[in-house]
């Protein structure tokens, strides 16, 4: 548990022929913490991770791990475990030999290596497959071996670049939870890059949302979700409705009710309010101004799409799945916010 070290990235910049892949990225990871970097494709997540790994040299900025400046240290001296998006097991080695590769380079004896590789493969639940080659393993199993291989060297930092994106949905959630369990068990400071917000929210201590090479917000999952710093974060993390409203200082009037405003909101006049589907309710109301456009059953929950009035954008409302069937297209309804704090941006 005490193995974790702090990681500090300071003002990292990296330009590829005119494109700012990293535009002054500053990021701090507490010892033993799992931080997920989240962002749309091309926002620089991979570049950030590769700069930390030493696979990419930043144009400027500093990389510090455990208080030591590693900016100019080559990858192979950085002591970082990596799991890649692409399958990266050495095809000519068995699972065990893959795990032992890094130990061999560290001149560990055969007995010690064997014990460690057995232990690591057990940790990822692959004791039955130690002598298999990559082509004899499924995608999920290969990534497990890659994880075992990365952790076997007892790295200072564990780096995961979308390790689950090539797997199908079921394996993905399963392995994601397992990565979290293992990470907590070994206590290694971990940077996890993903563009899947659910994945990030599910396993991270803190989630960093990136856009165009910059960190917009770094916060615990709940906070990120309930108090997004700006509309980009609100849009990117979870679903959100954009509804017209009028701001009066600390509150905003929207859909006929007053809602408290989050810090950073536009405070006066006409605004666009960002409201989550679960922060709205919909009720049958023959005299209501809103009309149901469609409703859908999604298993645990249901969604109703409602047009709040003429010339207004439709809004998405989350409802218990038991009541979805009560709403059919054309029904007159009323939509109200439940009163959870919302973010408002200047209308435009």
């Amino acid at each position: 548990m005490s193995r974790g070290v702090a990681v500090q990235l300071t003002d990292l910049r990296r330009t590829y022929s005119g494109v700012n892949a990293l535009d002054g990225l500053t990021l701090h990871l507490e010892p033993g913490e799992l931080v997920a970097l989240l962002g749309p494709s091309g926002c620089g997540k991979t570049t950030a991770l590769r700069c930390l790994a030493g696979l990419e040299d930043p144009d400027s900025g500093r990389v510090e791990v455990g208080g030591k400046d590693l900016t100019r240290v080559p990858t192979n001296k950085r002591d970082m475990g990596m799991v890649f998006q692409a399958y990266s097991l050495f095809p000519h080695l068995t699972a065990r030999q893959n795990v032992e590769f890094g130990l061999q380079l560290r001149k560990q004896g055969g007995e010690q290596r064997r014990r460690r590789s057995t232990e690591m493969l057990e940790l990822v639940g692959l004791s039955a497959h130690v002598d298999k080659y990559a082509h004899q393993l499924s995608g999920g199993q290969q990534q497990r071996v890659a994880l075992a291989r990365a952790l076997a060297i007892e790295p200072q930092v564990l780096l995961l670049d979308e390790p689950l994106s090539a797997l199908d949905a079921k394996v993905r959630t399963q392995l994601r939870d397992e990565i979290r369990r293992i990470q907590l068990e070994v206590g290694t400071t971990t940077l996890f890059v993903t563009h899947d917000q659910e994945e990030a929210l599910a396993i991270a201590d803190r989630v960093g949302v990136m856009r165009s090479g910059r960190l917009l917000q770094l916060a615990a999952p709940q906070e990120l979700y309930s108090r997004p710093a700006d509309d980009f974060v609100a849009d990117f993390v979870g679903l959100t409705n954009r509804v017209m409203g009028t701001s009066h200082g600390m509150t905003v009037q929207v859909l006929g009710a007053d809602v408290p405003l989050l810090p950073g909101s536009a405070s006066e006049g006409p605004v666009t309010v960002l409201i989550r589907p679960e922060h709205l309710t919909v009720t049958q109301d023959a005299a209501g101004a809103a009309v149901v456009i469609s409703s859908s059953f999604l298993g645990a929950q249901g969604r109703v799409v409602v047009s709040p009035g003429e010339n207004l954008h439709p809004v998405l409302v989350q409802v218990p799945s038991a009541v979805v069937a009560d709403f059919s297209p054309g029904d007159r309804v009323t939509v109200r916010p439940v009163g959870a704090p919302a973010l408002a941006i200047a209308a435009g």
Partner: peptide, 8 residues
């Protein structure tokens, strides 16, 4: 890159 991250 995998090899290098492992120390090679």
């Amino acid at each position: 890159e995998a090899g290098r991250s492992l120390g090679a």
